[in-house]
Amino acid sequence: MKSKIMNLTDAVREIPDGAEIAFGGFAITRSPIAFFNELIRQGKKDLIVYQDVVCMGTDMLVGSGAVKRLSYGGGSLDRFGRVERINDAYEKGTIDAREFSGLSIAYRFLAGSLGIPFIPTKILLGTAMIENLQKKNDDSLMISSSPFDDGEKLVLLKSLQPDYAVIHAPYADEKGNVMIDGPVWDLEMGKAAKKLYVTVDQIVSNEFVKSHPEKVTIPNIYVHGIIEVPYGAYPTAVYKMYDYDGDMLTKYAKCNKKQEEFDEFLKYYVLGTKDHDEFLEKCGGVKMLSKIKADPVYGYSKNWGDADEQH
């Protein structure tokens, strides 16, 4: 059996400066933080980034100065706060921020995953997003009329097959069959990418996959590399594995308001650690991680990290 297992450092070395790269993750859940941190440690530059709805890691990547262009459908850190490094870069024009809606980016990935050139739709018509994209001569969409002569006005969203993509999942086998519990908003992106890297909390046997084939959300056909990083999405949540760390997210949402404070955060937690294990140690280590373990029935921690206790 050909193994797709890689280590994180080598996987990230494969991503060149200026690469076109898409990310999974949504706000405070399944953000591939370990991969984002390693991209930052390796000092990547000029990345062209795509994401339906951005997450904590994307905000860190933009704040670190690694991103040249970001095409995204907006996003936040939910009630913890905003993606202020992205907002700041948008306002100051330090990145080329191109704002879409969530579905329009997802449709571009869907077209990519189906191998069709574009998807006709009516989303974005009349919005300020389409106006701004046209001002920037963005080549990912055009307004057209239906070829079926029914007078329908349409937006054609161009297919997107990003060179690289990264998702975090709870499980995969070494062949690259990926299992994700809960909603899978990043499925189409994973299937569209030319090289998909999946960081997983745990590698399971192919025997386990064969006894639960219905649980495979992304089969190995699409996968380039599987990277085992326990708690690889920390401090964001992985459904049925571990909860988000509310204290850490609160701290981040405070630091990301100002570049200087964000830089301090980055220096201490990311640039000041050699890998994800050290990062987890600095965040509180095993003692902290045992508190955020998910309850198998609820899928999140019932004792700690509860939003109700924080507010």
């Binding site: 706000a27 859940t29 009630r79 899978v184 908003w185 499925l187 189409e188 949540a237 899928g299």
Partner: peptide
């Protein structure tokens, strides 16, 4: 939950799917 990405919100769902 703190938002729609919070697994607290997903408890006892009838269906999980993607954005699409």
């Amino acid at each position: 939950g703190v938002g729609i990405a919070d697994p607290r919100l997903w408890y006892r769902s009838e269906y999980f799917t993607s954005f699409v």
